[in-house]
Design a protein around this nucleic acid. Structure first.
Lengths: 138, 138
DNA sequence: CGGCATCCCGGCCGATACTG
DNA sequence: CAGTATCGGCCGGGATGCCG
């Protein structure tokens, strides 16, 4: 069994069938793009189609393995397309589908919020850590 | 060492210090509320302050353990407040802070998108699974 | 009521090496 | 270039039980 499989190498980056996302739509979104890399990949693809290696360099820190798995997952859920060109040096392009058009704005809004709230959060965190320190011996 | 600690029971629901969220604000948001329960908790708290047991019942499926860990994490990052009332039966209320006011809308937008795109995604997934089936016995 | 401590497993994810 | 295969660590998170 060396061919492509549903669970590529024993996992699938997201739930294999979204079994119990149940009635909470927020959970569903997070199950789709709430993982470590998918959102960043979508953002990068938002600027236009990208090749595999382009994404690998753009996302910064992602491994080929996780890039592959994440892209497969996004493709499976209809969020990106994968196009193979029959060139001498292999060439594959990934692009977003119409499905994501409607989430780009909310995603941007979240990012904006992170930029604005970031400092406040850091402050709150340090305050919390200070007031709860000393419980643990160094 | 039976007191409260930074890593309560060996984990922290989110990164202990958000070390390498780096320059991607989206990653930071997901590091904060991208886990399995935090977003739902925030949504529930959006309707007003809630007690621990109220949340436990409202969130549906969450364990006391994860509720505690998630709330602690949200509290640490200044997204919710924890108020203890000195009553005979212990009473603790959780509420959102001003920090979250600005993400409620984007969060709602994401949920809306999930509701609308849900069917299309399911279709895409089944199509993908069909066209890639037969590689694995059974 | 509102937690915390312990056990434990499955899956995320990184590192590394091999392939068409 | 664009993947795939394999090993292994770490941690999210469920189940259970005890405590003030």
């Amino acid at each position: 069994m060396s061919q492509r499989n549903t669970a590529v190498t024993g996992q699938a980056t997201a739930s294999p069938d979204a079994p119990a996302a149940a009635e909470c739509p927020l959970r569903e979104v997070l199950a789709l793009i709430g993982d470590k890399w998918s959102a960043q990949i979508l953002v990068e693809l938002g600027d236009g189609p990208r090749r595999f290696t382009q994404l690998e360099r753009a996302v910064e820190g992602i491994s080929r393995r996780m890039l592959t798995l994440s892209l497969r997952n996004l493709e499976r859920n209809g969020l990106v397309t994968r196009t193979v060109y029959p060139d001498a040096p292999p060439r594959v392009e990934y692009a977003t589908t119409a499905l994501i058009e409607d989430i780009r704005e909310p995603l941007e809004a979240l990012a904006d919020w992170a930029r604005r709230a970031g400092p406040s959060i850091a402050t709150a965190r340090h305050a919390y850590d200070n007031s709860h320190r000393g419980k643990n011996p160094c």
